[in-house]
């Protein structure tokens, strides 16, 4: 497997607090990597750094061999990195189809887009995407009528519409019912191999269902990497999680 994302010596501080500190991480093409760790370990910050929401102070992020650490976020997005945020953020007043239309866009210039129809000819592909996350029945419905779980799935569909090769999912199963979590895991499993995916998640049950390799973060740095079994056996990981109820 070829290396897709390579992070080296990455660090950022907020008012002296080292949120991410000398982080090294390498993710292969088509891999589904889970990023876990106790609260404040710097998982979400790591995603912020990759997608350009936060500027790193040290280190490098290489995506397909290209340094992206200091590019503006829209250029990082165009390079093929898609991000789902912790708080669901879809366009609630637009329909599911329109949401996908916004995400699916080869042309990003305002000058060409003002001359192009809002309804692209590739509606078929978009309908398939909606079907992929089981939202066919809501294709023409405004996103505001979707449930919490459906909103999360729409977000995943948006990343696929965007044609992201590297997908960053921040807590995709947060606040979901058991069935919804199951369905989300199913969606993630179907994406394995086609896209490189990094999932930040607290729910160990969910991680068990999807994970190949798990990276554990602690105090802004990488603690260890391994399969779910290796990690649950590891003494250091147990210490870090001591007192928390993650059920490792």
């Amino acid at each position: 497997m070829t290396e897709h994302l390579h992070i080296e010596g990455l660090g950022v501080e907020f008012n002296g607090f080292k949120a991410v500190n000398d982080l090294n991480l390498s993710v292969a093409q088509g891999e589904l990597r889970c990023l876990i760790g106790p609260n404040g370990a710097g998982k979400t910050t790591t995603l912020d750094l990759i997608c350009g929401k936060t500027r790193p102070m040290h280190g490098s992020i290489r995506y397909r061999g290209r340094e992206i650490a200091r590019l503006p976020e829209f250029q990082i997005a165009r390079a093929g990195i898609g991000r789902k945020f912790q708080v669901p953020s879809v366009f609630r007043q637009l329909t599911v189809r329109e949401n996908l239309e916004v995400a699916h866009c080869k042309h990003i210039s305002v000058y060409t887009n003002i001359l192009r129809s809002g309804r692209s000819a590739e509606s078929d592909g978009l309908e398939k995407l909606a079907a992929f996350v089981d939202l066919s029945d809501y294709f023409e419905a405004p996103a505001s009528v979707l449930s919490h779980g459906q909103t999360q799935w729409l977000e995943i569909a948006l990343l696929l519409a965007q044609d992201s090769e590297l997908i960053l999912l921040d807590e995709p199963a947060a606040g979901m019912t058991h069935q919804e979590t199951q369905k989300t895991a199913d969606i993630c499993n179907r994406l394995k191999g086609k896209h490189t995916i990094i999932v930040v998640e607290h729910d160990m049950g969910f991680v068990r269902q999807i994970a190949q390799v798990v990276s554990v973060m602690h105090q802004g740095t990488l603690l260890m990497e391994g399969t779910v079994e290796e990690i649950s056996r590891d003494q250091r990981v147990r210490e870090v999680y001591l007192g928390s109820t993650l059920g490792i």
Binding site: A77, S89, L94, V102, C105, Q162
Partner: peptide
């Protein structure tokens, strides 16, 4: 369409590469 998306969730549109 993108204007309306910006109205709803400006930050999100930025991360679609616009």
């Amino acid at each position: 369409l993108i204007f309306q998306a910006i109205r709803d969730q400006e930050e999100r549109v930025r991360f679609f590469g616009y």
